[in-house]
């Protein structure tokens, strides 16, 4: 799971930072002449940090979600309209004046395209899997349609939650669909 490795990475980095800071703090108790050659060390410190960040950036940037499955023709397009405080999901385009949704069933292992928009304020459109992990998301912005493509591998019920604060019933705004 991506989230678990993120947490582990963070705890690992935090551990290193703590060790270094504590070590340096303790060293001031047995003080002598201070750090030798700080200029040179600073250079290496900076270089190493830059390289690590550079590698991290070049590994992660190609994994950006914007063009996921861009060269595929999706098996299905699902229109999503978010409104305070509910989602409408439909295989047909949704009319702003009389929005309506339907129960959605999606095929597994096929590319699905969600066309997500909002009819009032900004909302989030976040998909949670059966074990309640956030697997993908996009924003629902009034006036714009965001196209989110995803391939669901596991059959089952997936929940949708609003992840952009949208008002007093934000925490109740949700929907779901089935993958078969």
């Amino acid at each position: 799971m991506q989230q678990s490795s993120i947490l582990l990475l963070f705890l690992f980095l935090m551990g290193i930072a703590l060790i270094v800071f504590i070590y340096i703090f303790m060293s001031s108790k047995r003080a002598d002449q201070g750090m030798s050659n700080p200029l040179k060390k600073r250079f290496w410190f900076f270089l190493i940090l830059t390289i690590i960040m550079g590698i991290f950036a070049s590994v992660t940037i190609p994994k950006s979600p914007y063009f996921a499955f861009a060269d595929k023709t999706p098996a299905k397009v699902i229109h999503v309209a978010a409104m305070q405080f509910s989602f409408f999901l439909s295989e047909k385009a949704i009319d702003r004046d009389k929005p309506s949704g339907q129960k959605i069933e999606l095929p597994a292992n096929e590319v699905i395209e969600f066309r997500v928009t909002s009819f009032d304020v900004n909302h989030g459109f976040a998909i949670y899997d059966k074990s309640n992990r956030l697997i993908t998301q996009t924003q629902a912005m009034p006036g714009y349609v965001n196209r989110l493509r995803y391939k669901f591998k596991e059959p089952g019920e997936y929940n949708i939650l609003c992840l952009e604060y949208c008002g007093v019933a934000h925490q109740l705004m949700r929907s779901s669909f089935i993958v078969k």
Partner: peptide, 14 residues
Amino acid sequence: NNVFVPTYRLQNQN
């Protein structure tokens, strides 16, 4: 020609 644009705009928008 399968050129994917991740977003588009609704017509009624200013």
